[in-house]
Design a binder for these strands. Structure first.
Length: 190
DNA sequence: GGTAAGATCAGC
DNA sequence: CTGATCTTACCA
């Protein structure tokens, strides 16, 4: 159970994303969930990325050092979380789209009263953020040390053959197959 | 200064 | 399928 080191994140998000499958998102209060679905966003070469047109106040964290959390607010009500990747300045990141709850389910249920079953606790990027009580205050949180949030390696390897396909909910660069998930996993959002 | 679209979700 | 709800970024 060791936190992923900074070097893990310091690579292209299209390499990092599939390797994040099977890792554990964890909070210092005991909540943890196994990551089963992710999407890569590739900065200046990716028209679907928030960072596509360069840094803005909102996306500043994406252009900072890797291994930090880029949290954004969307649709007037939802927070979503990304792991910043690559060298500072690239604007690369991996959106955490879905996870399988492992521990601290009580706290997740309390954070997500709308969830109809445990399957829905972390099934979708905004649900995942809500289950972990992630919001704007966690923008820039260090996933390696010094914040309540971590991504841990418990020895579970990523799938040998992850499923891949187009990303969800975007209109530009909609063809790029930069979404990865654990094949057959029931906690994947789609 | 106005406006359109948005890396979504829940309920009908 | 649609309404909710509001921030950001882009354009005039």
């Amino acid at each position: 159970m060791t936190p992923l080191p900074r070097s893990f994140y310091d690579r292209d998000p299209r390499v990092v994303a599939p390797e994040l499958l099977g890792k554990l998102l964890a909070r210092d209060d005991g909540r943890s969930a196994r990551i089963v679905e992710v999407e890569a966003y590739a900065g200046a070469e990716d028209a679907a990325a928030h960072s596509y047109r360069g840094p803005t106040p909102r996306t500043a964290v994406m252009f900072g050092p890797p291994g930090h959390l880029y949290v954004y607010f969307t649709y007037g009500m939802h927070w979503c979380a990304n792991a910043v990747c690559g060298p500072a300045g690239e604007g690369w990141g991996v959106l955490l789209r879905a996870a399988e709850p492992v521990a601290g389910l009580e706290a997740m249920r309390a954070a997500r009263p709308a969830a109809r079953s445990d399957r829905d606790l972390c099934r979708g990027p905004a649900r995942l953020a809500q289950a972990f009580d992630i919001d704007g205050t966690h923008g820039g949180a260090d996933l390696v040390e010094g914040s309540p949030l971590r991504i841990l390696d418990d020895g579970t390897p990523p799938p040998a053959t992850p499923a891949a396909g187009p990303r969800i909910g975007i209109s530009r660069a909609a063809e790029a197959p930069w979404r990865w998930w654990i094949p057959g996993n029931r906690f994947v959002s789609r």
